[in-house]
């Protein structure tokens, strides 16, 4: 058995201590996935595991056996930018760029969660599909820290893509 990473099968590491983030960065040189704290406290290592956003720093690579991992490198089609990547550029959703891949992966999952009508802590009526709003995006992105203070641009970029998809 193996892990499917961006569509390619990758062998499991021999050492179970290797986290998914370590596997991506050290062994596969997929360094778009960042490690900011290695403690689950910042979200820089966010990847999609079977489409759901998870922290690759707290996921043991062996736990991903038989599952599908998508990283920032696998988000876009061929040489195109993913709409979120383009929107992050258009809205200045970054400065140093270190938290950016994690923000974008989290945002991709967020848009899917919103489309599925899943609630958040700030959703007024959790029995109904959550509305699209800046506040909803802020709450749902709160697991991705940014120290440069690009938050307004990040929220604007996600809103832009959400509105494009809704149109």
């Amino acid at each position: 058995m193996a892990i499917s990473i961006n569509g390619r099968d990758v062998a499991l590491p021999d050492d179970p201590r290797v986290s998914l983030a370590d596997l991506l960065r050290d062994d596969l040189h997929l360094t778009g996935t960042k490690i900011g704290c290695n403690q689950g406290g910042c979200g820089a290592c966010t990847v999609l595991l079977d489409g759901a956003r998870v922290l690759s720093c707290l996921t043991l690579a062996v736990q991903a056996e038989g599952r599908r991992v998508t990283t920032i490198e696998g988000l876009a089609e061929a040489d195109q930018l993913h709409p979120l990547q383009a929107a992050f550029i258009a809205q200045d959703g970054f400065q140093c760029g270190y938290c950016t891949p994690g923000q974008i992966c989290a945002a991709e999952a967020l848009l899917r969660e919103l489309a599925e009508g899943l609630p958040s802590y700030v959703t007024a009526d959790i029995t109904a599909p959550a509305p699209l709003s800046a506040e909803e995006i802020r709450e749902r992105m709160s697991g991705n820290l940014c120290r440069c203070g690009a938050h307004p641009g990040i929220v604007a970029a996600i809103l832009q893509v959400a509105e494009e998809r809704a149109a």
């Binding site: 979200g43 759901a52 956003r53 998870v54 922290l55 996921t59 969660e113 802590y121 697991g143 991705n144």
Partner: peptide, 14 residues
Amino acid sequence: RAVLAGASAQIRNM
């Protein structure tokens, strides 16, 4: 609501 108040979306998925 209590679950949604905890941690982050990533951590709640895990």
